[in-house]
Write a protein that binds this DNA or RNA. Structure first.
Lengths: 203, 203
DNA sequence: CTGTTTGAGTACCTTATAGTATCGATACGG
DNA sequence: CCGTATCGATACTATAAGGTACTCAAACAG
């Protein structure tokens, strides 16, 4: 039994799928969701609109597919040193800033007024970035014994929020300096303080 | 000398200005910038498009005016207690969340791809919210003597960034809990830690 | 070779929207 | 009153964009 029931006729070219998704991603970065047009995607990829609509039923579906394709969760760093790990989280984020995160920022901005996009964005963006910091932070809490006091979810939210706001609202890309700034200026101090509080409770 | 050189003809009704700005604000919240239409503004206000265009030359100008009208800087709290002041900063922000901040979030999202809106948003939103926390924090630094170590600008950025991201990206309004969460979970710990560091330096 | 599907190209349909123009009515100053 | 400007209403222009339909060429199976 052929599971891939070979259909008659010319098979669709998977490279065209990739091209279309990449082109859609580029245009999302450059133009945003609302200004991205199907004609522009087709023209940039040297494809025809029929080719697009044979693959995805609508603009929203195409954009969602492009955003999903752009996203792949980075590895959770584990060097043994908390500061290094946190910086690494930021840098993983930073690498994506140049492109992937802008794609997702564009989708997220638009999804505020487009429920169809909303679900996909929530599903595709919520997990990887939040979890990165959350895992490193909660692991540090377990190991370093800075336990119950620390509000890990909120701390994990800090960097993604700043990055998103900086990109979506101000149009400024995240730099290495930004990463250091937030880690050393907010996250580590916050953790250290609550370690101090916990220690102070013994007094 | 009449400074308001009285022009001949029927004077324009200032109440209509207000109505149009309010209607524009409402539609910004509900629809976002791209989906806001001049016809919708006119219809909602029972006005005609000619009336709008007699006041503002373009959609961008109207929206900018509406956003500017929505914004008025809150007072910087000064109760003597740092935590109370920080919570108050968040609450001032919170009050605006229900409406004004959504307006500005809508404008900011769109301004990423529209330079004309961009300047207005930067000018109208950058100052009041950033400065609120910045003033309270740097005053605390001066008074409490937690000086040189603290990265005030970055800390001042934390709450506005989280609020913006939560509103623009997730569509969730800021709650009292969010304010407490950030102040107690991030800002105060970060300040306390650096006070500790400073104190530790004496050792 | 025949039938089927994919592909680029293109013309087209429908709807939406920024912006303009016109009209009769109204409100104001002189 | 008369000129002038505003107001609501409506029609209109121009353009843009999502989506569909059609043509002809190419790729694959039998």
């Amino acid at each position: 039994m052929e599971t891939t029931a070979r259909r008659p006729g010319r098979p669709s070219d998977p490279r065209i799928d990739e091209q279309l998704l990449r082109g859609t991603q580029d245009l999302l970065v450059e133009q945003g969701y609302e200004r991205l047009t199907m004609d522009a995607v087709a023209q940039r990829c040297g494809a025809s609109k029929a080719t697009i609509y044979r693959r995805w039923p609508s603009k929203a579906a195409l954009v969602v597919a492009a955003a999903a394709a752009a996203l792949q969760a980075p590895d959770v760093p584990d060097t043994g040193d908390l500061r290094t790990d946190l910086l690494e989280c930021g840098r993983a984020y930073l690498q994506r800033e140049g492109r992937d995160s802008q794609i997702l920022a564009a989708v997220m901005s638009a999804s505020r007024y487009d429920p169809a996009l909303r679900d996909a964005a929530q599903h595709a963006l919520g997990a990887p970035f939040g979890n990165l910091f959350e895992q490193v932070l909660s692991r540090a809490v377990d190991r370093e014994g800075v336990s119950a006091v620390v509000d890990v979810p909120t701390l994990a939210q800090v960097f993604p929020a700043i990055a998103y706001q900086q990109v979506a609202a101000q149009g400024r890309l995240i730099t290495e300096q930004d990463v250091v700034r937030v880690v050393d200026g907010v996250l580590l101090p916050a953790l250290a303080a609550q370690a101090t509080f916990a220690a102070g409770a013994r007094r």
